[in-house]
Amino acid sequence: MPEEAQYAHGHHPSVLRSHKWRTVENSAAYLVPHLTPTTTILDVGCGPGNITIDLASRVPSGHVIGLDRADIVIADATSLAKESGVANVEFHTGDVYALDFPDGTFDVVHAHQVLQHLGDPVRALKEMRRVTKKGGIVAVRDMTDFLHWPEKPELVEFRELFWGISTRLGTHPGAGKMFRKFAREAGFEQSDVTVTSSNWTYADQEGLDFWAGMWADRVLQSEFHDNCVSMGMAKEEDMQRISRAWKDFQTTQDAWYVVTNGELIAKNQ
């Protein structure tokens, strides 16, 4: 399995729309009890920086560094930090497998929806642990599954494509289910590992408009579309049909969509 697996979705605006929606409150609440005003944080795979900047605002006497391998999102994140007036944060390009920091640099090393997109998540966790201070923590959150009602065949097909294309590209869809295994293989003692879970729930019109509308666009416009078609996993007409199904689901009476997520706090003792 390749370590440098390809990110299946790319950075089309339809993808970044979901990344820019994320905050500490809706995506990293499990981490909040571990923060103090002076906490130093490395946010790996920071994307456009929304969670990173939110974290920085919660550690006013600390410092936060956001890291991503895509130059385009680092530029967006840097601009957002300036606009937000948050001064204790900076952004750089970098590689999670070779973090350019000395051992024991940070109190917290955090990654949100990152391990599922890697070919070797255990190696990444080992490197994240290396740059974490003794007594500090590695904190990660990743999707585990999709649930929806009323059941719609095209959305089941979409889930199969999501899992299938990620697996074909050498990554780990549903990685949040595997956190205890990953942490053990990365060298953490099980007594130092806490695994929890939380959901993104879209069951009101605002939430359905956001989630279903976003995916209606992504299945046609992002690299997810291009990968599915170029690898022969779906035809163009299939992607068009799935997009229409997302739009229909957006206005389906009593619709309910949930993304379940696993959360890991691993202490570096």
Rank of each mutant, 00 (worst) to 15 (best):
H117S: 09
H117C: 09
H117W: 09
L118C: 10
L118A: 10
L118W: 06
L118V: 05
L118P: 13
L118Q: 07
P121L: 03
V122G: 12
V122A: 12
R123H: 11
R123D: 09
A124H: 10
A124M: 07
A124P: 04
A124C: 09
L125Q: 11
L125W: 08
K126F: 04
E127A: 08
M128F: 10
R129P: 05
R129K: 15
V131I: 09
V131F: 11
T132K: 12
K133W: 04
K134E: 07
K134V: 10
K134S: 12
K134H: 11
G135I: 12
G135Q: 10
G135H: 05
G135D: 03
G136W: 05
G136I: 04
G136R: 15
I137E: 06
I137G: 02
I137M: 09
V138H: 05
V138K: 12
V138F: 02
A139K: 13
A139F: 01
A139W: 00
V140M: 05
V140K: 07
V140A: 14
V140R: 06
R141F: 00
R141L: 03
M143S: 13
M143L: 13
M143T: 11
M143W: 11
T144L: 07
T144D: 04
T144G: 10
T144S: 14
T144P: 13
D145I: 00
D145Y: 01
D145M: 04
L147P: 00
L147N: 11
H148Q: 10
H148L: 03
H148N: 04
H148E: 04
H148A: 03
H148M: 08
W149S: 14
W149A: 14
W149Y: 14
P150M: 07
P150T: 12
P150I: 09
P150K: 12
E151W: 03
K152W: 02
K152H: 11
K152T: 15
K152P: 00
P153K: 11
P153C: 05
P153I: 06
E154R: 07
E154M: 07
L155F: 00
L155G: 01
L155P: 00
L155H: 00
V156P: 00
V156F: 02
V156C: 02
V156R: 15
V156K: 15
E157L: 04
E157I: 01
F158G: 09
F158I: 08
F158A: 14
R159D: 08
R159W: 02
R159Q: 14
R159Y: 01
E160Q: 14
E160F: 00
E160R: 15
L161K: 01
L161I: 07
L161H: 00
F162Y: 15
W163D: 13
W163V: 02
W163I: 02
W163K: 13
G164E: 03
G164W: 01
I165N: 02
I165D: 01
I165G: 07
I165L: 05
S166E: 06
S166L: 09
T167G: 02
R168A: 14
R168V: 12
R168S: 11
R168M: 12
L169K: 15
L169D: 06
G170Y: 07
G170L: 08
T171H: 04
T171S: 15
H172K: 13
H172V: 05
H172P: 10
P173D: 06
P173W: 02
P173Y: 01
G174I: 02
G174M: 09
A175E: 14
A175Q: 14
A175G: 09
G176H: 03
G176L: 06
G176T: 01
K177C: 03
K177R: 15
F179N: 13
F179Q: 10
F179M: 12
